[in-house]
Design a protein around this nucleic acid. Structure first.
Length: 401
DNA sequence: TCTGGGGTCCTAGGACCC
DNA sequence: TCTGGGGTCCTAGGACCC
């Protein structure tokens, strides 16, 4: 038998936030609906005075005022050109009658846990990629069924993927798109190919026909900047990138990035499915309703700053971390971003300490314009328990004291 | 009225140490 | 006086992802 490759699945929930909302408000099915903005957008219960019956009144995009963006659009809304990360005011110009719902992250997290548990009951080797996505390593499950040739292994994996989709739907009522491929990179690309409710198989011999015709931008890690630069160099598709000279790419994108792009375009990716992960940083940030001036809006800024620090401290405590590095982030009205951070000796999760350190970071910024956003960040994290033990130990007299 | 909030990883220069 | 390396930490910025 030839060397066996891995069988990696990528599962992506279809229009996740919006789909959860449609479970709650089934009357909105097939209507253009977007999730985004603040809680002012919650639907109101209205009582009909003549019949006494209550009915829900939903907010329309045309009623929206503010600086929010769409986080998810239903497939019906996408037909109007609405999509995630789009400004809501801009979206309102395209589809004024589309319905707006506020994001309910508690609900989405609940459904997230539910769908992941349903998958884990079938295939436990799972890597979390945020609230609505996972990678699943199916290799062990398939190969436990005995020696099979490569086509039969992919067929087995496809059957597992179908079972997983069914389990997710059974546990949540939601549809997902799933793909099986020899690695995470290809699985991720492939799960997009048949959305929604898709099931896609990409074997190594399918890369040339199914993947190479796609735009280079579809590679997870090639964003707008790299795509633009590639395009300027005459490379549009993944196939063109795969055919490009590696040394030539490295000269233009750096050794590491160039080599990685070339590997990716050729469908090669050895990254394992990682079942455990730790936070590297935790942060809070907010975009103001209007741009604020560092002096004239001092009181308002100070209150927001304190709130961000307290919320961050709560989150650190809840997640069980202390931080050695505290930083701030500003976005000016021209969208320029500035960050400052400072590393302290004693790790902390205390709101007042965080505010003091972050305050000193703010003092190092030159405020030439109004601010649009303020954020506070904690990094160089360590477990709060371990940090407490270390602190206690330092106070213990040593043998030589 | 363009452009949210939560993350990860990489690069690059300077400090500092061996 | 002139010449090093290597390694790690800190800081700032940027690309990218969900």
């Amino acid at each position: 038998m030839s060397a066996r490759g891995r069988l990696i699945a990528h599962l992506d929930m279809d229009a996740f936030y919006a789909s959860v909302e449609l479970l709650r408000y089934p009357e909105l099915r097939d209507l253009p609906v977007v999730i985004g903005g603040g809680s002012r957008l919650a639907p109101q219960e209205e009582v009909d005075p003549s019949t006494g019956a209550t009915r829900r009144v939903f907010q329309k995009l045309s009623d929206y005022r503010g600086r929010g963006v769409i986080t998810t659009a239903t497939y019906a809304a996408r037909k109007f050109g609405l999509h995630s990360a789009q400004g809501m005011m801009k979206a309102a110009a395209l589809a004024p009658d589309a319905i707006v719902l506020p994001a309910d992250f508690d609900a989405y997290r609940r459904y997230s846990r539910r769908f992941k548990a349903a998958v884990a009951a079938i295939a436990p080797h799972i890597e979390n990629r945020g609230i609505d996505e996972i990678y699943i390593d199916l290799t062990g499950l398939v190969d436990a069924r005995g020696p099979l040739d490569e086509d039969a292994r992919f067929a087995e994996a496809a059957a597992l993927a179908r079972a997983i989709k069914g389990a997710v739907r059974g546990a949540t009522g939601l549809s997902s798109s799933i793909a099986v491929a020899p690695n995470k990179l290809l699985a991720k690309i492939a799960s997009e190919l048949d959305k929604p409710d898709g099931l896609t198989i990409i074997r190594p011999q399918d890369v040339a026909t199914r993947v190479w015709p796609l735009p280079a931008r579809r590679i997870n890690g090639i964003g707008p900047k790299s795509a633009d630069k590639l395009e300027a160099l005459g490379i549009r598709t993944i196939g063109e990138l795969a055919a490009a000279d590696r040394v030539w790419l490295c000269e233009r994108f750096g050794r590491s990035h160039g080599a990685w792009m070339h590997e990716a375009a050729n469908g090669r990716d050895a990254r394992p499915v990682e079942t455990v992960s730790e936070y590297r940083s935790i942060s809070r940030e907010t975009t103001f309703d209007r741009d604020l001036h560092v002096k004239r809006d001092r009181a308002e800024l100070s209150a927001i700053f304190t709130e961000l620090c307290e919320s961050l401290a709560d989150d650190l405590a809840q997640k069980g971390y202390v931080a050695r590095t505290i930083g701030i982030k500003l976005r000016f009205d021209d969208f320029r971003i500035v960050t400052r951070d400072r590393t302290i000796d004693a790790p902390t999760q205390d709101a007042a300490t965080i505010r003091a350190v972050a305050g000193r970071c703010l003092a190092r910024v030159e405020f030439v314009r109004r601010m649009r956003l303020l954020g506070v960040r904690a990094s160089s994290l360590a477990s709060a328990d371990a940090a407490a033990r270390d602190a206690a130990q330092e106070k213990e007299p040593t043998l030589f004291d």
